[in-house]
Design a protein around this nucleic acid. Structure first.
Lengths: 218, 218
DNA sequence: CCATGGTTCAAACGTTCGTATGAAACGTAT
DNA sequence: ATACGTTTCATACGAACGTTTGAACCATGG
């Protein structure tokens, strides 16, 4: 083992390239070239290209969800019903915070994550399981914090919040472009602050008239 | 011309495949096979693969933006400052409505559009110009309808609204999955109703404390 | 009638892809 | 030092890719 763990070098390079060019747009040859590793190393360590993608994904997603669930535990241990703002920070901050603070690779990974809605093929399911897990745990608490909102409306709104988060994660530079440099996504605390305020407003909005039953006409 | 316009057959097939599998994931051979057209026809009519993508894109995007701008004209002609709900419907309804009503291909195209945030490479700019154009026209009106919100906060929130829209467009089935079938995206009017209510709440939310200057600490 | 310009066709170009192979190199325990 | 399981290496395979080519096709105007 002359070089520090080939496996990690491959994961780092793959993470960067998958984030920049997508799954189909990234060749294993480009990955191994960037990692300064032999081409066959990928198949040796990860089996297939898809195995590499899953490994890239799971290396990062575990700590994020662990932090989310730990924060949820912490919140539930307090006994009282958590405040809406607290809940949203649990959902949003771990992803945004890790994007800045730690490994710079994390930011690249979050681009993959944010792009997950657009992913097709077999690895899509791998990605969605992650969201589903947290959401199942998260939703009842959200319901408790927003007793006035019917469940189906709440699903819609949580869907929108996650959509906003994913868009922001998948392309942090977009906002700076459309705002002509007025806004910057550099500080994850600022992002979280803006997104939480927006989400609170959206979640608490008055329920539209004809949504007591699904499929109501306008 | 025995078969109805080869060019359109190619565009239809390409639209469906690009939406389902992405740009890199779609081969020209798959397109021409689906269109029942000779392989060389793509290069004859569109030059390159990228040219085909742009043609697919522009065929659909023109009517949407035309309708948006027409509705904006109509709103401005009334003289008074448009209500926020009206503005949001201008932004959201044309895309959502066309997804259901007309050509079924429109829904597929909107998947491409919703995915635009995740697109990399040269055709990304083609896509973003569209958003930018409408947004430049749209933003001053939004500002007028929300006099209490500082511009930089408004940029953030518009960014979030568009993110929620794109997520919904790019994967209309996701909501049904996470809500265990409780919600369905079948009716664009329902989608618009839910999204407008959510967006109004989010846009009108109280401005977070330390955003008077960009980059403020929490 | 043949000529012409636009369109379609089968076939091939060179390149790149994901994956597989078998031998060399390595660290370690006997 | 020898043997062994693990990791790395150069190389090759067949398939699929985007693109090009030149001949065939076909409607129209002379």
């Amino acid at each position: 083992m002359a070089t520090p763990d080939t496996k990690d070098r491959i994961l780092d390079a793959a993470e960067e390239l998958f984030a920049a060019q997508g799954f189909d747009g990234t060749s294993l040859r480009a990955v191994t070239r960037a990692a300064e590793v032999n081409l066959a190393a990928v198949n040796y360590h990860f089996g297939h290209k898809l195995g590499l993608f899953q490994a890239v994904f799971e290396r990062r997603v575990r700590p994020i969800n662990a932090e989310r669930l730990a924060r949820l535990d912490q919140l539930e241990a307090q006994g009282s019903v958590p405040r809406l703002e607290e809940l949203l920070e649990v959902l949003l901050l771990p992803a945004l915070r890790l994007a800045k603070g730690g490994d710079p690779g994390f930011a690249r990974f979050l681009q993959i994550l944010g792009r997950s809605n657009s992913v097709t093929g077999e690895h899509a399911q791998t990605i969605r399981r992650v969201f589903a897990e947290v959401q199942r745990r998260f939703f009842p608490l959200l319901q408790a914090a927003l007793p006035g909102i019917p469940p189906e409306v709440l699903f819609w709104r949580l869907h929108f919040v996650i959509g906003a988060l994913c868009t922001q994660l998948s392309d942090p530079g977009r906002l700076a472009i459309v705002s002509d440099g007025l806004c910057s996504s550099a500080d994850p605390d600022v992002v979280a602050q803006q997104l939480v305020a927006f989400a609170v407003g959206g979640l608490r909005a008055p329920v539209p008239a004809s949504t007591s039953r699904t499929g109501g006409r306008s």
